[in-house]
């Protein structure tokens, strides 16, 4: 059982929880994630570890409340305990001193990229951050990101804060002005795909984070299989970081969309099922399960 010692609301439907997890805090590195299950019998979802305190044994998790499990996590209070957290999972991010690193993130990806920006800066790189949010309300972790980057560009889609536009537009400008050594992109699949297309021309090393559906997060069920290069690998074991130019984004997006739509159509089927009182809960459960990631 893992006790919650801090809870914050960062943006609309985005919450942060700090939990006591000494075994994980001891070993976790930027880029790794945990598999978390709020109550016994709940599904396990992967969440990136955004911050960690090795001395106190705490880890910080930030997530968006989209599905049943994330909403359940968001409803927990200070002092309550989470049933199961397993970690640190995944391969840690590749952090090296290369010179100039551009970190671009949208939405909840902002939280995921924070430890990576910090790590790159700490080993002596110059870090340019590009953060995209839908509105000012949806923007999170601004002071922390500012501190972890040498230069930062924030855009909002509706123009309610700083620049108006998409993060990828800013990236285009940056790529023309500067010559980065590494580009790190975490956000929606479409954003990561277009980032990789932009950097391919210049041959700039690009990393992305893939978050497919995961069930056991241990490498035993193969639900997180993704195509990288010509091999099928498991994102929970080899990822979540991958070389962006080798990732088959089209297949990834197709599979993810197909699974989400399946969840929707199952939801409709369940409404016509004979079970009465439970079907309401489980309707949400089905759609929530497949969307129940950050």
């Amino acid at each position: 059982m893992f006790k919650i010692v801090n809870k914050q609301i960062l943006a609309t439907h985005v919450k942060r929880l700090d939990v006591i997890a000494p075994n994980i805090a001891r070993k976790v590195l930027p880029g790794q994630f945990v598999s978390i299950s709020p109550e016994e019998g709940d599904e396990r979802i992967p969440l990136s570890v955004v911050d960690f305190d090795r001395d106190r044994g705490h880890i910080s998790l930030i997530f968006q409340e989209r599905g049943v499990t994330t909403k359940k996590l968001g409803a927990l209070q200070l002092g309550e305990e989470i049933f199961s957290i397993l970690g640190p999972l995944g391969k840690p991010a590749t952090i090296e001193k290369v010179g100039l690193v551009v970190c671009i993130a949208t939405g909840v990806g902002t939280a995921k990229i924070l430890p990576i920006c910090r790590a790159y800066k700490r080993v002596g790189n110059k870090v340019i951050g590009i953060i995209g949010a839908r509105t000012k309300r949806a923007l999170m972790l601004e002071p922390q990101i500012r501190l972890s980057c040498n230069k930062i560009y924030i855009t909002t889609e509706d123009g309610s804060y700083e620049r108006k536009g998409l993060a990828s537009d800013i990236l285009k400008q940056i790529l023309e002005e500067y010559d980065p050594d590494v580009v790190y992109a975490i956000g929606s699949e479409e954003m990561m795909r277009s980032t990789c297309e932009m950097t391919k021309k210049g041959g700039i090393k690009t990393f992305v984070h893939l978050n497919p559906i995961m069930v056991d997060c241990l490498g035993m069920c193969a639900s997180c299989r993704v195509k990288v290069g010509d091999k099928i690998v498991l994102a929970c074991m080899e990822g979540p970081e991958f070389d962006g130019h080798k990732v088959d984004f089209d297949e990834f997006i197709k599979r993810k969309k197909a699974l989400e739509e399946f969840g929707e159509c199952c939801k409709h089927k369940l409404t016509s099922s004979p079970k009465k009182s439970e079907s309401g809960i489980f309707m949400r459960f089905v759609s929530g399960f497949l969307k129940g990631q950050q």
């Binding site: 599904e43 056991d216 035993m220 069920c221 599979r255």
Partner: peptide, 18 residues
């Protein structure tokens, strides 16, 4: 790798986990 294709372990794990 189409949607709706599970491996046996994943299917049984979901059945048993939840």
């Amino acid at each position: 790798n189409l949607g709706g294709v599970y491996y046996g372990e994943e299917f049984l794990m979901r059945v048993n986990l939840m």
